[in-house]
Simulated scan of single mutants.
Amino acid sequence: MLTILDNPRSVAEDLDVTDDELILATRARVAGRGLPGPASAKDVAGFERIVGHPMPELLKRIYLEVANGGFGPSRVLSLTDTGNWFSDRADIAMAYHDFAADPDHSLPPGVVPLMDRGCAMWALIDFRTADGQMWDWDPNLCCLQHALAPLEQSLAQWLTDWLHGVMPDEPYSHRELSSRDCPHW
């Protein structure tokens, strides 16, 4: 059985955790949260058309097998408006369109806002990568020009951090240090 919830090993030691184990651990962690039921394959396909890239397989499976939003540290956005808003956006498509429409956000195509971390901070996921590389949006560090940065971890690693309870509520420490080189600091 999965030890990810029981054993606070480092992320590096959990690289052999399978998607099946992460899905089981995620389902166990969110049990009792009253989340919406799983999304439909039609909802996934519709959002993939909007983004123009396939959804990373692990994220797709979580939406299809666990819940249509609400999982994760600060509750991942739903694919469709389920009536349960996990940010000030009804769903992930609204967040994606809002980011794309705002010239200050300038996200690369295929990078999708996934979770509102509060205080204008967002966790984003790269649909252009099979493993769902994670990105951070934090305009509070210095300026909008430097708000976006890759986290250099996959969705699986990001979820593992959350399941271990090591997901930061504040800015990521390595981002805070690197932002001090910004001339706008």
Rank of each mutant, 00 (worst) to 15 (best):
T129Y: 04
F86L: 12
L163V: 08
V112L: 12
F127G: 03
H97E: 15
W137G: 01
R61V: 07
R89A: 14
M134W: 00
L159D: 02
R89K: 12
E176T: 13
G110F: 06
A147C: 10
W137P: 00
D81W: 12
R175C: 01
E57K: 13
E152W: 13
Q153V: 07
F127K: 03
G72H: 01
D81H: 15
D98H: 15
A100N: 12
Y63P: 00
D91H: 15
C142E: 10
A67I: 03
P168F: 07
P113S: 03
P108R: 15
G110C: 08
Q153C: 10
Y172H: 10
P113T: 05
K60W: 08
M55L: 10
Y96K: 03
M94A: 15
A90R: 15
L141Q: 05
D169M: 04
D81M: 13
T82C: 06
S78I: 11
G165V: 08
D98K: 14
S87Q: 02
R175L: 11
E152Y: 12
M134K: 00
W162K: 07
G165L: 11
D169C: 03
E65Q: 13
H164S: 08
A120K: 05
E65L: 09
A67E: 02
L163Q: 07
G70V: 07
F127C: 06
Y172N: 05
I92T: 02
R117Y: 04
G118T: 04
A147D: 01
L155D: 01
M55W: 01
L151Y: 10
G110W: 04
P73K: 05
I92N: 04
R75M: 07
D88N: 09
N84D: 14
P54V: 12
T80W: 12
H53I: 11
L151W: 10
G132W: 05
Y172T: 08
P103C: 15
L58N: 03
Y96A: 06
D161V: 09
M121S: 01
G52M: 14
P139G: 00
L141V: 09
L79A: 07
D91Q: 13
A90W: 04
A120L: 04
E176A: 13
F86A: 09
W162M: 08
C119A: 00
R89M: 14
M121Y: 01
H53G: 07
V51H: 10
W135I: 00
A149Q: 06
D104S: 14
E152G: 10
P109I: 08
Q153H: 14
E176C: 09
L151R: 13
A147S: 11
G110A: 14
R117E: 07
R49H: 13
Q145F: 06
S74E: 03
G69S: 11
A156G: 13
W135T: 00
M55D: 03
R61M: 05
M115R: 08
D126E: 02
S106P: 03
A90K: 14
Q153P: 08
K60H: 13
Q145W: 06
I50R: 15
W162F: 08
L155H: 03
L148G: 02
L151P: 09
D126V: 00
V66F: 02
L144D: 08
D138L: 02
M94Q: 15
E152A: 09
P73M: 07
G70R: 09
L59S: 01
P109N: 07
W162I: 07
L148V: 00
D81R: 15
M115L: 11
C142L: 11
T129S: 13
A100R: 15
P168I: 05
A67D: 03
M55I: 06
D91A: 11
G72Q: 01
Y96I: 05
